[in-house]
């Protein structure tokens, strides 16, 4: 059976340190404004007080990728293992993919005049290495999971602020944060 690789982001472990984002930037030597992964804060009023959490997302390597449909030159392919690959050699920089993606994942590189996005480091995966963000997260909060094989306990596909998953069926899943006990004095 074909694989269905996707990210599993553990919000319980994530501390919002941005090491995933910046280690990826450093490894791929991206221009100052470019990034393939981003860490965003889920504000208290979204998650429900008093929990505040961070969520790290890259390309969601969707089952039904909107970028691939929108690309006029066929620069996007979906591999058998589920990874959505963008071929920069074919890309004409029209930015249609960026507009089509509900998660605004593909970014325009103003120097190369091409789009750019996370490839789940497939060339590393193919030789048995982990993607950079997975390897460099100090808290082991990002994993690659074959969702055809396992359905991790407590994993959810929808979190506040995340676009409706029925559009493109993203493979990214999340483990939510659990609040502790507090003795606060006002």
């Amino acid at each position: 059976m074909a694989k269905k690789l996707g990210f599993l982001v553990n919000i319980e472990r994530c501390i919002g340190c941005h090491a995933c984002e910046i280690s990826c930037k450093s490894f791929y030597q991206l221009e100052p404004n470019m990034r393939r992964r981003r860490v965003q804060e889920l504000p208290e009023d979204v998650v429900g007080t008093p929990v505040r959490a961070f969520v790290s997302t890259a390309c969601n390597h969707c089952d039904d990728p909107a970028c691939k449909k929108a690309c006029p030159v066929g620069a996007y392919t979906k591999r058998e293992d589920g990874i959505v690959v963008h071929n920069q050699d074919l890309c004409i920089g029209c930015q249609m993919c960026g507009k089509a993606c509900p998660y605004s994942v593909p970014m325009f590189n103003p120097v190369k005049k091409k789009m750019d996005k996370c490839s789940m480091c497939y060339d590393r995966l193919d030789v048995g290495q982990l993607p950079i963000c997975v390897e460099k997260c100090p808290l082991e909060a990002i994993q690659i999971v074959d969702y055809n094989e396992v359905q991790p306990a407590n994993a959810v596909s929808e979190i506040p602020t995340f676009a409706d998953t029925s559009i493109t069926h993203p493979t990214t899943h999340f483990i939510l944060h659990k609040p502790g006990k507090q003795s606060r004095r006002f």
Partner: peptide
């Protein structure tokens, strides 16, 4: 504190 089991504010 948000990652802890218990938070004591002083």
């Amino acid at each position: 504190a948000k990652k802890s089991d218990t938070y004591i504010q002083i």
